[in-house]
Design a protein around this nucleic acid. Structure first.
Lengths: 186, 186
DNA sequence: GTCAAATATGACATTTGTGACACGATATCT
DNA sequence: AGATATCGTGTCACAAATGTCATATTTGAC
């Protein structure tokens, strides 16, 4: 759990240390005290919340770095690997999940920015995954690229259920890369 | 009885090791010394009491699970519901996952204390789930009760792979409840 | 046993909390 | 408008707490 001292916050906010202490005493900034003389510590999340609440600029070193991690969900490992190759070559970090359990857990642990999702996996209803992701706030900003050999009707249904893009198998590497890049350029 | 070294506490409090030793010397934090050179150890309860006493945040990994949440993983909804009925009647909170994705995500979001796991689910290798849970520190204290209609050999393999208990189908409600209670009584 | 990693210790450097006071901005009153 | 209070912030000095570093010793893993 990362914490900040008053001095660090003072520097980050370009303000006097004395002032930071007053913020904490006044309750504007949430912190806690060490046992000794009562030196203050502020948890990172509380500090960031404070910055946002007051419309203050967030120092770049505190912005959580935007990962380029892509989670590839496909039960056919060869296909997953081929997707991985294309994306890796383009500079993306990648991760493969070959079953639903892996997909679900990796999604929450690794927090990828994009997931490629095979619609027809054994024991896993892709539409349920879409619904699930879209209804959970903490991951709902995940981009989802549905990849499937199913007909257009199913792909349209995927789009209607929250997929950000679809790609029909078979596809060219170039198509894949283009789609991914388009999805990630906000 | 779990104890902490000064280094561990230093990390948990985001403070210097030297400072932790001073807290102990000063008596602010209750600890005891090993015979050798007097290396310090702090009992978990003393540490938590210390944190509370000084209004310091308690790291999430130390908050004792007060929840009695049980995650029921089974693709056959009727079976899952029947398990749910038994456990609910006994006062447990319950949650059902009918596919691997749900299981994986619920596991990390809801942090149940116990999971009942059907070994033979389509598209999900139960042994992989066991391995996965046991190799991830943040959830490795999860109790896993494997429920399956497979033969004893498979059940033994499950135990060897990290299951805390197994139950062969069909089973009586009483057996289920006994096993769950035994797993959760410490 | 052997060896790497963690820990205690002292001396010293740095940071922090506190009180008192000054300064500027804003609001309030006459 | 002008005078005056009020509030937030900056400055300074000092004492106390915390951090740093090097080194010897202990733990713990293999």
């Amino acid at each position: 759990m990362k914490t900040f001292t008053t001095g660090e916050i003072a520097k980050l906010c370009d303000v006097n240390l004395r002032t930071v202490i007053r913020w904490i005493d006044r309750g504007a900034l949430v912190g806690f005290k060490l046992p000794g003389r009562g030196n203050n510590r502020v948890r990172e999340e509380d500090f960031i919340a404070f910055l946002h609440e007051h419309g203050m600029p967030v120092p770049p070193e505190l912005q959580q770095e935007i990962s380029k991690l892509v989670l590839i969900v496909d039960d056919e490992l060869p296909i997953a690997k081929s997707i991985q190759r294309v994306l890796k070559r383009a500079g993306y970090e990648t991760l493969i999940a070959t079953d639903g359990f892996q997909a679900g857990s990796q999604l929450l642990i690794e927090k990828p920015v994009l997931m490629t999702l095979d619609l027809s996996m054994p024991g896993l209803d892709g539409f349920e995954v879409l619904k699930y992701v879209r209804s959970h706030d903490d991951i709902s900003n995940l981009r989802i690229l549905v990849i499937s050999a199913l007909d257009e009707e199913q792909l349209d249904k995927a789009l209607a259920n929250g997929a950000d893009a679809v790609l029909q198998k078979p596809f060219k590497n170039e198509q894949l890369l283009n789609t991914v890049q388009k999805l990630l350029q906000n």
